[in-house]
Nucleic acid binder design. Sequence first.
DNA 1: TTGTATCCCATGAATTCCCATGCTATCCCC
DNA 2: GGGGATAGCATGGGAATTCATGGGATACAA
Lengths: 158, 158
Amino acid sequence: MFLSRVTNALDAKGRISVPADFRAVVGDGSFDGIVVWPSFDGAYLEGGGISLLRDYQALLENMDPYDNGRIAFERAIFAESRRLSFDAGGRVSLPKELAEYANLNGQVTFIGLGRRFEIWNPEGYDVLAGEARKVARENRHRLRLAGRINSTNAGDVS
Amino acid sequence: MFLSRVTNALDAKGRISVPADFRAVVGDGSFDGIVVWPSFDGAYLEGGGISLLRDYQALLENMDPYDNGRIAFERAIFAESRRLSFDAGGRVSLPKELAEYANLNGQVTFIGLGRRFEIWNPEGYDVLAGEARKVARENRHRLRLAGRINSTNAGDVS
DNA sequence: TTGTATCCCATGAATTCCCATGCTATCCCC
DNA sequence: GGGGATAGCATGGGAATTCATGGGATACAA
C-alpha cells in the first residue's frame, strides 16, 4: 500500500530515488521496479507496481473489446507507460518526455494513494494538497466505516 | 479496540512509546506498527493500525473514481499518512512535520477512540475533554444499543 | 566521436537497532 | 495480609545500518 508524500531530487542524469517505503511495496518477483505513465487528468505522472497494471488489464478485459472507453484506456495507459527498473541504490531514471509532461526539474514529489501513486512537481502539488484538505473536511461526514452494533467484535481491527 | 487516554514522553530523537494496550491491537502480521496522519479537522493527529487504512481504502474504492470527495480523502489521508513501525521497546519515531502540525513537544496524549485513535498536545486535549463530556450529556438519550436484547454476550468487551 | 543509458562505488546524514536503567504493577510465598 | 521477587513497560543513549545522492567508469547507439 503506497502511503505518504515524499520529495526527492531529480539529478542531472534524470535519476530519482524512489522512496524506500514504495520500493518495499512493489516487489513482485518478476520485475524489480515501477511502472509510470502520464496522467490523462493533468500535468502529473501516475504509477504503481507491475501488479497494478495486471489489475488494470483484468479490469479492461472484462469490458467489450470494441468499447471506445476500453480502447482509449489501453492506449492512454498501456501504450504510454514505461517500465522503470531500480538501480543498486533504489533509483530509476525517468525518460525525458515524462519529465517534461509533468514539468519536473530539480525536485519531484511522490504521492502515495494506496494502490497507486502519483509523481508531481512539488509546487504544483502543494496547492492541490491544500484544496484536498478543504474538500475532505467539507465531506468528512461521508467517511463512515459501517458499524456492526451486535457483533461480538464490533470495532475489532485485529 | 483502542481505549483510554495515555500521556507519554516525546524524546529528543522524536520517539514516543505507543501505549502497550494500543500495540496489542494493531498486530496484523504484515506490518508491526501504526499509521498516523494529520487530522483535516484540527491541530492533532489521527491514527490506527494498517487494517484501518485498508478499511478506508475499501470504503473509498466503492465511491466513484472521480468523485471529488473520494479524491480529496485519498489525498488528505493516504498521501499525508506515515507508516511508523515499532522499535524493540514499542516506540515509534514521529516525523518532525507531524509533531509540528499538532504542536507536540515533550509530552503527547494518545486518545483511544475504538477503531482509531488520536494524538494530541496534552493541554490542547484537556479543554476538549471537558466539552465532550458536556455534549455527551446533552445527547445521552441517543446512546441506545439497538437490536438483540437477549444477546448471550452483551457487555463483552473483547 | 558524441551523446545516452547503465552499472559501480563513495559519502554524509538520518534513521533504526540494540542494550541498559528505573519504575510500577503483578504474582507468589510465607 | 505483608513483603519480596518477577515481569512488563516507559525511557535514555550509543552504535550500526539504511537511505538519498553525487560522481566516475563502462557499454551501446546514433
